[in-house]
């Protein structure tokens, strides 16, 4: 069996497309995992810069570990504040 990648949805009758539920669920699930991992990658890059400032040893000290956890929590808090502020600005502008 081959995949038609020519982009021709035109000759495909939408009602004849059979959605495989197993595959659909699998892809939705994998997409969520990939999204989660992408966010963890971004957070690790940022929090590494902020928290790992001392000379490296074989293990993190407690201070660095706390900083890493706080860094994740405060990043999400900050995102919420930013989104709220932004949406209130947009709403004010829409009111004019």
């Amino acid at each position: 069996m081959s995949l038609d990648l020519s982009g021709g949805m035109g000759d495909l009758d939408a009602s004849s497309v059979v959605v495989d539920k197993d595959l659909q669920n699998f892809i939705i699930q994998e997409q969520q995992i990939a999204q989660f991992n992408a966010q963890v990658h971004k957070l690790t890059e940022q929090c590494w810069e902020k928290c790992v400032t001392d000379k490296l040893t074989s293990r993190f000290d407690g201070k660095t570990e706390t900083c890493l956890t706080n860094c994740v929590e405060r990043f999400i808090d900050a995102s919420v504040v930013i989104a709220q502020r932004f949406s209130s600005i947009i709403q004010k502008q829409a009111g004019h």
């Binding site: 989660f36 991992n37 966010q39 963890v40 990658h41 957070l43 690790t44 929090c47 590494w48 928290c51 790992v52 490296l56 040893t57 074989s58 293990r59 993190f60 570990e65 890493l68 956890t69 860094c71 994740v72 929590e73 999400i76």
Partner: peptide, 25 residues
């Protein structure tokens, strides 16, 4: 030596951040 420590620490950081982010969500 620093590079070797760094790889250990970075992977450790990744795991910790993954857990922290997961439990927050």
């Amino acid at each position: 030596k620093c590079l070797n420590f760094c790889v250990d620490n970075y992977m450790d950081a990744w795991t910790k951040i993954s857990r922290a982010y997961g439990s927050r969500i």
